[in-house]
Amino acid sequence: MLSKRIIACLDVRNGQVVKGVNFEGLRSAGDPAALARRYNVFIPLSVGGGIRTEADAAAAVDAGADKVSVNTAALADPALITRIADRYGSQAVIVAIDAKRETADGRFAVYARSGQRAAGRDAVEWAREAESRGAGEILLTSIDRDGTKAGFDCELTAEVSSAVSIPVIASGGAGGLEDFVDVFTAGRADAALAASIFHYAETSVRALKEHLRGRGISVRFLRE
């Protein structure tokens, strides 16, 4: 049985790992190499941020990335998803969707440029299109929950995960162990990503996995 994945996220700016709240007020969380060493070496690595062309994707793969994630550039040119998938396979293409709940109608709107600009698209509809164009996974971030530790947006995650047949990685809002249980059950997530709680060493990946296993959720352990 396929295990649920826990993904540690390292956001790097100017050589430092940074973390903000609601995509703003980035603060340093340490040296990227030192943080990366705290995780495992021979495990999959995805690279995203500023990938605009096939050449950018190729450079990331050549540097050792297993997958690339595209966001703003795919919104501007959705055919980019297909071009990268044709070259490296769908499994190498993650479409990152940053979504925010609209107060007017309760729908989830997509934002581009690190949450700065409304893209004029609905998150569920865009996820479906990304899948049809060849995306292998969706990395779905709730801008409302980012860095808040208020829990994942399970409603957003479940809506998107139910609408597509590719894996959905939930992101934004991880605060406590029970938040992961919620996103893997109510949120129907295939994987969950977190940054703050791991960087600031509030929780170890192992402690989290033990908690999940105790709640009947299949996860991978390095050693029994």
Partner: peptide, 28 residues
Amino acid sequence: KVPHVGWNSLAIERGETAILEGVDSGAQ
């Protein structure tokens, strides 16, 4: 969900396969 992405386990069918030496059934 397809693609199949992530950690999954091996159910070893044959005991004495050289490539699986030292790998237990159930390994992820």
